[in-house]
């Protein structure tokens, strides 16, 4: 190819306006032996492009077993399982709380009487029981009064002493 054409192409190349075919022509020109001396600096550039394209990925293509590949779908199965399990646990807890509170409510109803006379007797009985239980501890209170007497004696003495001084 004539030199002036190459120069025009180079100009276009640096403006980013060349087509792939034109770029290939440039590459061919610079890879040939008779490059004009004032254009020699570009030969390394176009030579490099060819060298860079020769690089290859040498590792093996990672191909996993089918089973491993479907790990993701297995994972989603597992997540559904856990969702179901948590719903079950939730139902269990809510049910348990619901039923135990109902039992408590039933316990609070102590029963009632229809006949007023029976009710009166039952009340009297309950009150008598209460008063008996209240009297149980009364003897031990006597001891407490002894302490009181002793304390009073002591404090009276000290009072006398103080007044004496």
């Amino acid at each position: 190819m004539e030199l002036y054409k190459i120069e025009i192409l180079l100009e276009k190349y640096f403006e980013g306006e060349t087509t792939l075919a034109e770029e290939k022509a440039l590459k061919d020109y610079f890879s040939s032996s008779d490059v004009a001396s004032h254009l020699e600096q570009y030969s390394s550039l176009f030579g490099y492009y060819g060298v860079a394209k020769a690089q290859q990925y040498e590792k093996a293509v990672p191909v996993l077993e089918k089973q491993q590949r479907h790990n993701s779908s297995k994972m989603s199965h597992r997540s559904w399982l856990s969702v179901a399990a948590s719903i079950l646990v939730l139902i269990g807890v809510v049910g348990y709380v619901f039923f135990t509170t109902q039992d408590l409510k039933e316990d609070k109803k102590l029963g009632t009487f229809d006949d007023p006379e029976v009710a009166f007797k039952a009340t009297q009985k309950a009150l008598a029981l209460l008063s008996n239980k209240v009297n149980v501890g009364i003897e031990s209170v006597q001891y407490v009064e002894e302490y009181q007497i002793a304390k009073n004696k002591v404090f009276r003495k000290t009072k006398n002493k103080n007044s004496g001084i």
């Binding site: 394209k53 690089q55 290859q56 990925y57 590792k59 990672p62 996993l64």
Partner: peptide, 30 residues
């Protein structure tokens, strides 16, 4: 190879580019 070369152009190091290519291929496979 094109994936590898682009990765190498950006990441510079060959090892990193290989790792990146591996990653991309695994992603494609899955």
């Amino acid at each position: 190879d094109k994936v590898f070369r682009l990765a190498k152009r950006l990441l510079v190091s060959t090892e990193e580019a290989e790792d990146a290519t591996q990653e991309i291929l695994v992603k494609l496979w899955s």
